[in-house]
């Protein structure tokens, strides 16, 4: 469905992405995982159409879309800080884009998403009255009502804490499942990437370190970077949890 071929990107002579290749299908969740500054957000921006690649192609359903401007690609993004408009209520934010479609927007048009994301009690609140998780859900709803072909999420969980994080995680999986929507997530957290996605693309210093399912990555890490940087973090976490709860509870 989405094919990324030989993508390279340089900024002022510095190569930040080198020969990136991967493919994902409809309704799949892909995580772009890697340390800060590895180029994952640049890759996300290239897919979105915000940044132009120096070389390579982005192909969606067989069509090369690199030349198509961002606003005409039909993809959409939820930013890390949500980018909600603070002068509008949660509901006004959700229906913001629909007003550009020259039709009178009614609540029933978006009710499905409001119910799905459990936003009903918060619709008339100002943005500064919402919690991090609620903001995240409003931002997702605003994006979903535009019925994007692919949903991009830039570090969607990094601003959230424990329990809320888990609830948003399951909701993201549900979105992919219920709406058959392809989702690409940028994250630097291995646990997040490996537990939420169908496929994970690990980037290190602008290059693909490994691309595969979480199981493949856990079972056969492709190089020492993945073992030391990615998997070691999980082992440390596991150890800490064992220490706290004992092996049985963990």
């Amino acid at each position: 469905m989405l094919l990324v071929e030989n993508i390279c990107k340089s900024f002022g002579g510095k190569e930040v992405l080198k020969d990136i290749n991967f493919q994902i299908g409809e309704g799949e969740i892909l995580s772009l995982l890697g340390p800060s500054g590895c180029g994952k957000t640049t890759l996300l921006n290239i897919i979105l159409g915000l940044t132009e690649q120096s070389e390579g192609q982005v192909i969606y359903k067989g069509e090369e879309i690199s030349h198509i401007p961002m606003n005409k690609r039909g993809f959409n993004i939820v930013f890390q800080d949500f980018a909600l408009f603070p002068h509008l209520t949660a509901y006004e934010n959700i229906v913001y884009g629909l007003k550009n479609r020259n039709a009178k927007v009614q609540k029933k048009d978006v009710q499905e998403y409001i119910d799905f994301l459990e936003l009903e009690p918060h619709l008339h609140k100002q943005i500064n009255q919402l919690s991090g998780g609620q903001k995240q859900r409003v931002s997702i709803a605003r994006t979903l009502v535009m019925q994007p072909k692919i949903l991009l999420l830039d570090e969607p969980l990094s601003a959230l804490d424990g329990v809320i994080k888990e609830s948003i995680k399951s909701r993201i999986q549900q979105i992919a499942q219920d709406f058959g929507l392809t989702i690409i997530i940028v994250t630097h957290d291995p646990e997040e990437a490996l537990t939420i996605s169908n496929k994970v693309l690990i980037i290190n210093e602008g290059k693909v370190a490994q691309f595969g399912t979480p199981q493949q990555i856990m079972a056969q890490p492709a190089d020492p970077f993945i073992e030391t940087f990615i998997l070691k973090q999980l082992h440390i976490k596991r150890k800490n949890i064992y220490r706290l709860f004992g092996e049985r509870h963990a």
Binding site: N71, N100, R142
Partner: peptide, 17 residues
């Protein structure tokens, strides 16, 4: 927020809008 214009564009606004 520096993402507002991009968000606006993705929600089918023109820049001026």
């Amino acid at each position: 927020d520096m993402s507002w214009e991009v968000t606006g564009a993705l929600l089918e606004d023109t820049w001026l809008k």
